[in-house]
């Protein structure tokens, strides 16, 4: 299961609404989420992750991806404020995020990759304003599959570089505060 899917296309445009879209579903803290398959660059098995100090919990660390250093976000910590427990089935889903004029490759640590679903546009509904335990701006829409709802994630919000690097700054001060109290 080292490389479940590998896609060369980095095409970002969502499939047009008329067509049936393909979505990758995965588990985070026992809940199913999905992202458009067009956003997925590659799925790799979990490798040695180097923790980066003075960063918030949801930055799990950095990995070596064929010679490049790529940050990995703990989706469970980011969505549910609870650090993921790495198991045999844990995977890293690599996606590309755009910021200003540069493109950054980011890995998402998920508990398990499920399957690729074809979801017709009719089955996709706008996100509810309340009733979920994750931030509403992280939800792009809800998809109905077999009478159950799966959250389609808004990748650009979940992995917003502006936000990730800003939050890094906030906890950095708390990090040094901890360091101070430790001595």
């Amino acid at each position: 299961m080292s490389k479940l899917i590998r896609k060369e296309s980095s095409h970002h445009a969502l499939a047009s609404q008329e067509q049936v879209g393909q979505y990758l579903t995965f588990l985070v803290d026992k809940e199913s989420f999905a992202i458009s398959i067009l956003d997925v660059k590659e799925i790799i098995e979990i490798a040695n992750i180097t923790h980066v100090p003075l960063t918030p919990d949801y930055i799990h660390g950095v990995i070596n991806l064929r010679g490049n250093v790529v940050p990995v976000i703990d989706l469970s910590a980011r969505l549910k404020h609870q650090c993921a427990e790495v198991s045999k089935r844990s995977c890293i889903v690599l996606v590309e995020v755009e910021m200003a004029d540069s493109v950054q490759l980011i890995g998402m640590l998920v508990d398990e990759v499920r399957e690729i679903l074809e979801i017709p546009p009719d089955n996709i509904q706008p996100a509810p304003d309340f009733g979920t335990d994750i931030r509403t701006d992280f939800i792009q829409s809800m998809a109905r599959v077999d009478e159950k709802f799966i959250i389609l994630l808004a990748i650009n919000k979940v992995l917003s570089l502006e936000e990730l690097s800003q939050l890094g700054q906030i906890t950095e001060s708390s990090g040094s505060r901890i360091a101070e109290s430790a001595d």
Binding site: N48, L54, N64, G67, V69, P71, S102, Q104, Q169, E172
Partner: peptide, 26 residues
């Protein structure tokens, strides 16, 4: 190896490198 935009504001670490065993060191 650059750490990228996400760690731009990180103090104490300037970059990363890939070690012989494939791990990343800061």
């Amino acid at each position: 190896k650059p750490l990228g935009k996400m760690f731009e504001k990180l103090k104490g670490i300037t970059g990363a490198t890939v070690l012989g065993d494939g791990n990343v060191a800061l």
